[in-house]
Amino acid sequence: MAHAHKLEIFRGLIKFKSNTQKIWGVLIFLTIVTGIEVALGISKPHVLVVNTFLGMKLLNWIFIILTLVKAYYIAWDFMHLRDEKSSLRRAIVWTPIFLVAYLIFILLFEADYIYNVFKDGYVTWNF
């Protein structure tokens, strides 16, 4: 049970005195991250839109990474995975990560292939 809380985040950079305090600290962090996302989404800095990495805009990479950061803190501190045994934590986290990564890889590659067929092939779809 989660009676013994681990009270540090950012690998011990910030230590909280109580569990309640840690929750508010995580809230502030999540709010800042969401704020950054919205600010970037509205301003859309030109540099991040023009440059791409692996076929995707840098801006979108930033969004996805920030989302994973948020997901980590929601799971670790709100769902208190941080306080669970590592075996439970690994079973919960790695199973979906493996399956989802596999699914995304297959579906996005297939979609890109279909896009190219529509674009360069003999299929008319915009008439």
Binding site: V100, I104, L108, E110, A111, Y115
Partner: peptide
């Protein structure tokens, strides 16, 4: 994840 991945599929198809 299945829903969101299929959303990604359709989106990449009509990117």
């Amino acid at each position: 994840s299945g829903f969101l991945a299929s959303y990604g599929f359709s989106r990449f198809k009509f990117i």
